[in-house]
Amino acid sequence: MVYIPGTEGKKAIGWRTDIDGLPTNEEAGLPFASKHKGAMHACGHDIHMTVALGLLEYVLQNKQKNNILILFQPAEEGPGGEREMYDNVIEPKYKVNEFYALHDSPEWEPGIITTKVGELFAGIAAVKVDFIDTPGHGAMPHMTRDPLIAAASFLLEVQTLISRNLNPFDAEVLTFGTINGGTAANSVAKSCELTGTLRIGSKESLEFSKKRILDIAQGVAKAIDVKVNVEIYDAYSPVINSPEITNKFMNWMKSRTDFKFQEAPITMTSEDFGYILK
């Protein structure tokens, strides 16, 4: 983190970049590719860092009237480094009036800047549903309670959250990416766990969805006669751009000739910069 006092210092402007890597081998063949096996600055973090370093050089070479805080933030990809940095360092020590950040995107051609007022990135809740009960021999199902049947039923039933419960004009996604249970083809498993991600915009929809997932899991468990544990926790806040600051930025962008501005759609990816904007 770098703090540069301004000549007037009436307000402070923050700029944030993420600096963490992902557990991936870089195979782009670039001269500046990661030299560390199994680690690279993917998800655009290399560009984000480079722009932030360039900005630091710029503000050191061009005196600023405002105080400038440039935040090089770890753990964007998890487990939420923004919260740690903001709560423990930035908020107690610095009074930042406006905070900015960019995310690069291959979806947009070079020379295009795009954003919108309001929600730009979705918030995330992580979901874990674990059906558990009585294992046993596959030839004696009457002596068991089968969590795999419950998991299969739940996975289908919970699809109605998006297709039948939520407003189709709201952007929401629920994806279960793992399902694990059982150890042998001829045995009824002791448990079956599903993990998923809920991508959602408004706090109201999030709370509603959490309750529906819990209700559906408990309903299925009752119907199949097994036990269930459900854990849902908020992972990342949505990125919600303030109207005042974003309109100011967009109006300024529209006056530029070196970049072209376009209004952005909401995206279902997430960004823990949402914690600062919250």
Binding site: T24, I47, L102, H103, D104, S105, E109, F249
Partner: peptide
């Protein structure tokens, strides 16, 4: 927050 278009030397390859 805003998006900065960076295209890509090869189309259809995601940020991750």
């Amino acid at each position: 927050m805003f998006w900065l278009g960076v295209g890509g030397k090869e189309k259809g390859i995601s940020l991750h």
